[in-house]
Amino acid sequence: MGLFNYWTVIVLMMVGFYTVIARNNLIKTMIGLGIFQVSVFMLYISMGKIADGTAPIRVQPSAGHEAIYSNPLPHVLILTAIVVGVATTALGLALIIRIREAYGSIEEDEILEMDRNS
């Protein structure tokens, strides 16, 4: 696989990133943010992978053969990061609901237009 795996992850990341900065719709922005973050998680997990390794859960040793475990630390970090990501999403969505209440729109340019006029 070489570096191909990383490159695909990067492409995903950039698709997410583009959605975040280019989209006008607030919900779409949040979806983009999600894609962006999940792709970063993939980057982490990819680097923890060892070819022919197994998941880092202890297996009963078979005679003469020692299991190769993938690196557990990235998994630990990403478990934390996933939760952080969802927390951010939840907060963002709550804000969107409030914005919708206050402005009646979830399109960023419309909202900014209203602010300029008021």
């Binding site: 919900i27 979806i31 197994t54 998941a55 859960i57 996933i82 990501g85």
Partner: peptide, 29 residues
Amino acid sequence: MDAVDVAFTEAAVGAGIATVLMLGTLTQT
């Protein structure tokens, strides 16, 4: 990629909770 714990969490949190939250928001907007 051998990250079963992460996969489990992502399926539950990312695919589950986040989607529910998004849908909830959509009903409001």
